[in-house]
Design a binder for these strands. Structure first.
Lengths: 351, 351
DNA sequence: TCTGCCCGGGACAACGTTGTCCGACAGGTG
DNA sequence: CACCTGTCGGACAACGTTGTCCCGGGCAGA
């Protein structure tokens, strides 16, 4: 029974022990001039011994940064997939944040409106110094909202479509992956194997990266003279992935290869193929845009696009911290993902 | 170019507009007596119009709660699986927290030591009001540490082993699932199908729930006179899951059924079976302790133990909030998970 | 009409930091 | 010996909120 309530040490405690004033302690511990080396050392020693750390609320209140970044994930209730993407992204963000003494406030909400509402609340409550915005859309209200609130942000996943100017700003950075180039890589891999009818099971329509991939497939198909390279949008779930696969494979001249925007839908597509008596990769090839344990564990192992998502998160955190310290908004492009050919892609039947 | 820096409204602003003092505003907005109904209404109207929200740091500083709960996930770098468990748990926690105006500070670290270090830091910085502790171990330093810091906590996943007293305390609650009963359910399902040689690919040794499941299998096997019901511990990854499955299936009298502590290892086990020419469920039955999209999407679909993880998270949040408001530490048992028989379990060969 | 009481509401301290200002004291110089 | 300059360090306000204290006015009872 530890009934003694442990008191966290404050600067006042340090000042008392070191025989100086509170301001001297503040100067010493913030490495500011105005304190003799001897006193500074003594103060630092006492602080160390007492295990002192600055009280985050007090620091935030006196104008310093709160030391907290926010990240909101808008997902309709109950539609949590098994994508490892977000957990890995967060892992990367935090690995960059931890040494800089910043923490991550994370919240999931149901939709975009709630997300915007939450940004307003966080701003009004002074909770966060900046936010990480994910799942950018082609028509996205968030950058404008955050700019109007003066809340620094980094958009993860790029935002431009067509020739539009990239939405960076004085307090907005942008970290993105080159989906267009990635799609070209995939299509050429399939083309090289002999495929001429390729279809794409995409993610959520209106998401910037979904639209970019659709556009990239269309352009590359036109260039390579592929027939009817169509894209279908889904909500990333296995159910809609399966439904999309069924629709595509039921056509009179079905595609010989499917590109799936995440691994969950790729697995669903494999199941649908089996259900229709099609063997992978003999009768149909399947590519997953996301690599994960799953893709390597399953049989057949899935040909996947592999990117370093943790690294992605690290870049995002760095970009946001740079904006926080007053730097200009910048645009970072992460390395192009690699295509890892495995067992699920092969020449098409009769090819 | 919005160059005007938007100012967040403070109580002072409200006081000025309403023609009262700051303390009157505080009284009115906190529903405390001492303000006439008319003045109260006027103040509330102004606050509403200005979109005022209490500044979290100021509130925290003046002795009120910070409105932040913390959750640490200790995972060795790069061992993030595709388990949807934690994301769903967090989702549930937040759904309970949001209406109570609490936020969740989330951080991932490499190991248990870093986790303890982080609790110390959070405490010293006054960052959190309480923490959610996951992955409890049989020998766990965290409850004692948190108690010594006076930091309220809820342990998710139960902690007792054997007849030990459940570690609840004045500021410690405990939300757990009855793994023993769940294991009994699984074993009886398999026994009913005719299986007499069952093995268990468990999670991380030393984790309380792993040890509980191991013990439960041993006890139930003894009762039902099953031969050699052995358990193997792993790190939850596909790699170790596969290795464990290989080891078990290579025995001279291999088991006819495998119980896997998560879905990733269950999938790995299916692959290993295929690799050895064994068909699921004809030659070997496989049960996954975790249900997810994956288990329903794969072929054969996996017989799984299904629990409402979001509900689990909600219970955890409620229990922690109860402790925060001064309630006694309590022990909550979540509903027993249901076993969902699918295609991966069937009578054993020759059974 | 005077005394006592209750109640609305204002002034002020407190929380733990940071930042500004200014006094004290040491050293060197005229 | 007096003066100036530079540095060390203390006193104090500020941040936005909550909590305590107290004052003044209205009302009831004597």
């Amino acid at each position: 029974m530890e009934e003694v309530p442990p008191k966290r040490p404050t600067m006042k405690d340090i000042a008392r022990e070191a025989g100086v004033s509170a301001s001297a302690v503040s100067f010493a511990l913030n490495n500011r001039a105005g304190v003799s080396p001897g006193t500074r050392a003594r103060i630092e020693r006492v602080a160390e011994r007492l295990g002192w750390r600055p009280h985050s609320a007090a620091r935030a209140l006196s104008g310093e940064s709160a030391g907290v970044l926010g990240m909101v994930l808008a997902r309709p209730a109950g539609s949590l997939g098994v994508e490892s993407f977000f957990l890995q992204l967060m892992s990367g963000i935090q690995r960059a944040l931890a040494p800089r003494d910043h923490a991550l406030l994370f919240q999931m909400v149901d939709d975009l409106d709630s997300e915007c509402e939450l940004y307003r609340r966080w701003w009004a409550e002074g909770r966060v110094d900046g936010v990480v915005v994910v799942d950018p859309r082609t028509e996205d209200p968030r950058p404008a909202l955050l700019a109007s609130l003066g809340l620094p942000a980094v958009v993860v996943g790029g935002m431009e479509t067509g020739g539009q100017a990239p939405p960076t700003g004085p307090r907005l950075s942008n970290v993105w992956a080159d989906d267009t180039a990635a799609m070209v890589t995939i299509v050429r891999h399939l083309y090289g194997l002999g495929h001429r009818r390729v279809a794409h099971i995409g993610g959520i329509g209106g998401f910037a990266h979904t639209e970019r991939r659709i556009e990239a497939l269309r352009a590359e198909a036109a260039r390579a003279e592929l027939a009817d390279a169509r894209s279908v949008t889904t909500d990333y779930t296995d159910a809609q992935g399966a439904e999309a696969a069924r629709g595509l494979l039921a056509q009179t001249t079905p595609p010989t290869a499917l590109i799936c925007d995440n691994e969950v839908m790729a697995v669903a597509a494999v199941s649908v193929a089996a259900e229709r008596g099609l063997a992978v990769p003999r009768d149909i090839s399947i590519v997953s845009w996301e690599d994960s344990v799953l893709c390597r564990t399953l049989h057949p192992q899935l040909t996947s696009l592999s990117r370093d998502t943790e690294e992605f998160g690290r870049h995002a955190a760095e970009a946001l911290l740079a904006v926080l310290t007053g730097g200009p908004g910048r645009r970072v492009t992460v390395p192009l993902p690699r295509l890892i050919p495995r067992e699920s892609t092969a020449p098409p039947p009769g090819g």
